[in-house]
């Protein structure tokens, strides 16, 4: 047990370096930015960087927009990806394997060459400068990555369980709702966390689709902190810290679902 703790502590130390550095810079005063002596605890600690960073961009407006996009995407991904993954993993239908390969294929083409055709299609729909191109795709199709992930998890559920449910009179949807979803909550939590993380930090999507300051997201706002004027790195890091914080809290609290997810012990029920 001691070795385990030692290993964990050692690894934590290494993994904490970037974050501690980020926080440390975010608290460094402008005049200290050119010091060649790096201090883990800046002297003096300058909290006003946070205040300036939050006023430099309309932080709370961007936060609201980011929240809206995130909520929409998490909801969409959960609904659509689980359904499709269920169809791929647990149902037998002609064309399934071909479509699965098609889905895998959509992950393999670099998005850079698809960006413009997709953009043109969304513009033709009149969705430019709205959240629709950034949310609707989550509902229609979700994300191949997540579908594949969920499918892998669904396939670990013993078929015997489905048979039993079917004999009990459970419908196809009933099996999905009462067996598959509850049994794979850790996977569902993983998908939600990833979606949250992706959308929260997505830069390219909002960049090309949004065209109003009032619709911008935090990831875009972060970009307007000049990386060229390095002396402003403290403000940049302050915003980064503020951006990480909510994710951190969600992750810390949401862990319950990874860990307390009902595993196959559910068979007893």
């Amino acid at each position: 047990m001691v070795t385990c703790y030692a290993l964990l502590a050692g690894a934590s130390f290494v993994f904490l370096v970037p974050l501690v550095w980020t926080v440390s810079v975010s608290l460094t005063g402008a005049d200290q930015m050119f010091s060649t002596v790096f201090r883990w605890v800046p002297e003096p600690v300058v909290w006003s960087n946070y205040q300036r960073a939050v006023t430099h961009i309309p932080f709370f407006l961007y936060l609201r927009n980011t929240l809206a996009l995130t909520a929409g995407n998490v909801a969409g991904i959960i609904v659509s990806s689980t359904l499709v993954a269920y169809a791929f993993a647990c149902l037998k239908w002609p064309g399934r394997d071909v479509l699965f390969m098609v889905m895998m294929a959509t992950m393999m083409i670099p998005p850079q060459v698809l960006m413009i055709p997709v953009f043109v299609i969304f513009c033709r729909l009149g969705w430019y400068d709205s959240f629709k191109p950034l949310i609707v795709p989550a509902f229609i199709g979700g994300n191949a990555f997540f579908i594949f992930l969920l499918r892998q998890f669904y396939r670990t559920i013993p078929t015997a369980l489905f048979e039993a449910a079917r004999i009990d009179g459970c419908s196809v949807f009933g099996i999905y709702w009462r067996i598959v979803l509850p049994l794979t909550k850790p996977a569902l939590a993983t998908v939600s966390i990833f979606t949250l993380n992706n959308v929260w930090n997505d830069f390219m999507g909002p960049l090309i689709y949004l065209n109003s300051e009032t619709k911008k997201t935090l990831a875009l706002g972060l970009q307007s902190f000049s990386a060229t004027s390095g002396a402003e790195a403290n403000e940049l890091m302050a915003i980064s810290t503020l951006m990480i914080l909510p994710l951190l809290v969600v992750f810390f609290l949401g862990q319950r679902y990874f860990i307390e997810g009902i595993t196959l012990t559910g068979l007893k029920g």
């Binding site: 659509s80 359904l83 169809a87 791929f88 698809l114 299609i121 795709p137 199709g141």
Partner: peptide, 21 residues
């Protein structure tokens, strides 16, 4: 059931996946 569950995804794949591809 298979197609019903996949329908939204299929639409998405056709218009925002297959067409751009």
């Amino acid at each position: 059931a298979g197609y019903a569950f996949c329908l939204p995804w299929l639409l998405g794949v056709i218009f925002f996946g297959a067409l751009p591809l």
